[in-house]
Amino acid sequence: MEPDVLEGGFCNAPIDAAYAFRAAMNAMARPGQIETVAGAQPPGPLSVSAGVVILTLCDPETPIYLAGDHNCTQVRDWITFHTGAPMTGPADAIFALGKWSDLVPLDQYRIGTPRYPDRSATVIVEMDELSNAGETLSGPGIETATNLSLPDRQRFQQNATLYPLGLDFFLTAGDRLAALPRTTKIAGVS
């Protein structure tokens, strides 16, 4: 284990995690709203915001699947040291993390069961950029409509048809994040 992986965690875990969770909750409650987070300095290719989400929500009870380039020694060691979360394959993952092209297809993740729709994966999608342009979103948490740059349309629409089952997403880029729960309806580019 490289000594670097010991760095970059929350300096004051209870406080940093409280602010980070508020941002993550606001994002999940208001799909399309972009929040800025801080507190983590994870090794590349992990973004600050994905690192913050992992430090805030992951622990030994949440198996993580790392897709593509994110499945590297530095990232694995950093997550293991700071959260204790075990690494796993997509079928058992509570959280999945990676670039969109590495994360698909989506049908490899757990979407919950009719009795327990909450037992579904949360997918953290690392993006180059995040902006309020592109696909038009509507649904719970959105007063009328909003826009968000999504990496895909059809797959998210497909996911929404599974409701109340389905996956929930965090979209992360740099120190910014947004969320897309299964309830959000996605129309075309406006």
Partner: peptide, 25 residues
């Protein structure tokens, strides 16, 4: 901070996020 230990808060926070993703469940 806020009485509960961090692991408990993470567990509750995960439940809150799933609750927001499946309103009313």
């Amino acid at each position: 901070f806020a009485y509960l230990d961090e692991q408990t808060k993470r567990m509750i926070r995960r439940a809150i996020l799933k609750g927001l993703a499946i309103p009313g469940y």
